[in-house]
Structures are given as structure tokens and as C-alpha cells.
Computed example of a mutant assay.
Amino acid sequence: MAYWLFKSEPDVFGWDDLVAKGEQGEEWDGVRNYQARNMMRSMAVGDLGLFYHSNVGKEAVGICQVIALAHPDSTAADPKWECVDIKAVRKLPRAVSLEEAKAEPRLAEMVLVNNTRLSVQPVSDAEWSVIMELSGDQG
């Protein structure tokens, strides 16, 4: 299993919106960055991700799961744009802010800390463990 981070603006589509989708989840559409698209192409069903509120809050708020492999993005006219489907798993006991991640030496190499603009990012096993620790999530 691999770990990822999915960024969304909470005033457009936030954690509560994903939770409301239930088991059917939601297509992670609208990504128009080749690097992020290629990461989604490498995802497997069952991979877990951090749901991150960007712009407003700037914090990881929940855990989501990939429930469908990469497929054409229904919002794109060009079939080169693909996305996965994700569903909410659980809310983190405590959100972990970007500021907190930047202050944590064990997260110094995390993509989020070094490239805050990328909307889909890989998270290493070690980084995932640190975020779970900081959030108080016992899994």
C-alpha cells in the first residue's frame, strides 16, 4: 500500500463533502497537472491518503482511500486527463497544519513542506507515521 495527500479548497469541496458522498466516494477530478495525474495513474485501490484543506486552514483533516483506479476525468474534454475515485475513511482526531509540518524535522523532506502547490502528492511510510502521531490517530 502507498500513501498520498489530496489537496482541496474546503470552500469548494471539503472533508465534510467527501464524508457526505459515503461509500460511493467521489471522483478526484479537475487536476490539470501532469505530475499529479501521473501519480494518480500509479495509485492502487486501497491506497490511503491524507485529505488536506488548502487555502483555508492549510491542514490535513482526514484519511481517505482510493476506491477506483485512474480513469478519464469526467470534467475534462481531453482524455489525457485522468483521476481516481476516493472515499472518506475517518477524520483525524486533530488536524495537522502546514505550519506544524514545516516545524517538524522528521517532515523536512515531505513534498507538502517543499512544494505546497502540487494538488496530489506522495507521502512516505515514515511521513505517514509522523502525521498519524501528530494527529493522535491510533489507526
Score class of each variant (00 low, 15 high):
residue 59 E to I: 00
residue 60 A to L: 04
residue 60 A to N: 09
residue 62 G to T: 07
residue 62 G to Q: 01
residue 63 I to K: 02
residue 63 I to G: 03
residue 63 I to H: 11
residue 63 I to R: 11
residue 65 Q to I: 08
residue 67 I to N: 11
residue 67 I to M: 03
residue 68 A to M: 06
residue 68 A to S: 11
residue 68 A to F: 01
residue 68 A to L: 01
residue 68 A to R: 10
residue 69 L to H: 11
residue 69 L to A: 15
residue 70 A to G: 13
residue 72 P to I: 06
residue 72 P to E: 14
residue 72 P to Y: 04
residue 73 D to I: 03
residue 74 S to L: 07
residue 75 T to I: 00
residue 76 A to N: 03
residue 76 A to C: 09
residue 77 A to W: 01
residue 77 A to M: 14
residue 78 D to H: 02
residue 78 D to C: 05
residue 79 P to L: 07
residue 80 K to D: 06
residue 81 W to S: 07
residue 81 W to D: 10
residue 82 E to Y: 00
residue 82 E to Q: 11
residue 83 C to V: 00
residue 84 V to E: 02
residue 84 V to D: 08
residue 85 D to L: 00
residue 85 D to A: 12
residue 86 I to T: 02
residue 86 I to A: 10
residue 86 I to Y: 07
residue 87 K to E: 01
residue 87 K to I: 08
residue 87 K to Q: 11
residue 89 V to G: 05
residue 89 V to Y: 10
residue 90 R to T: 06
residue 91 K to C: 06
residue 91 K to N: 01
residue 91 K to F: 03
residue 91 K to W: 04
residue 91 K to M: 05
residue 92 L to A: 05
residue 92 L to E: 04
residue 92 L to I: 04
residue 93 P to R: 12
residue 94 R to H: 14
residue 94 R to G: 07
residue 95 A to I: 02
residue 96 V to L: 06
residue 96 V to Y: 06
residue 98 L to V: 01
residue 98 L to T: 09
residue 98 L to N: 04
residue 98 L to W: 07
residue 98 L to I: 10
residue 99 E to T: 15
residue 100 E to K: 12
residue 100 E to P: 10
residue 101 A to T: 08
residue 102 K to W: 01
residue 103 A to F: 08
residue 104 E to M: 00
residue 105 P to E: 13
residue 105 P to H: 09
residue 105 P to Q: 12
residue 105 P to D: 13
residue 106 R to S: 11
residue 106 R to A: 12
residue 106 R to E: 15
residue 108 A to N: 08
residue 109 E to W: 04
residue 110 M to K: 01
residue 112 L to Y: 13
residue 113 V to S: 03
residue 113 V to L: 09
residue 116 T to W: 01
residue 117 R to W: 10
residue 117 R to E: 11
residue 118 L to C: 06
residue 119 S to Y: 02
residue 120 V to K: 03
residue 120 V to P: 05
residue 121 Q to L: 11
residue 122 P to F: 12
residue 122 P to Y: 14
residue 123 V to F: 08
residue 123 V to N: 04
residue 123 V to P: 03
residue 124 S to H: 05
residue 124 S to E: 05
residue 124 S to R: 05
residue 125 D to H: 06
residue 125 D to Y: 02
residue 126 A to W: 02
residue 126 A to P: 00
residue 127 E to C: 09
residue 128 W to D: 00
residue 128 W to H: 10
residue 128 W to Y: 14
residue 129 S to E: 14
residue 130 V to P: 04
residue 130 V to F: 02
residue 131 I to Q: 02
residue 132 M to Q: 14
residue 132 M to A: 15
residue 132 M to R: 15
residue 132 M to S: 09
residue 133 E to I: 01
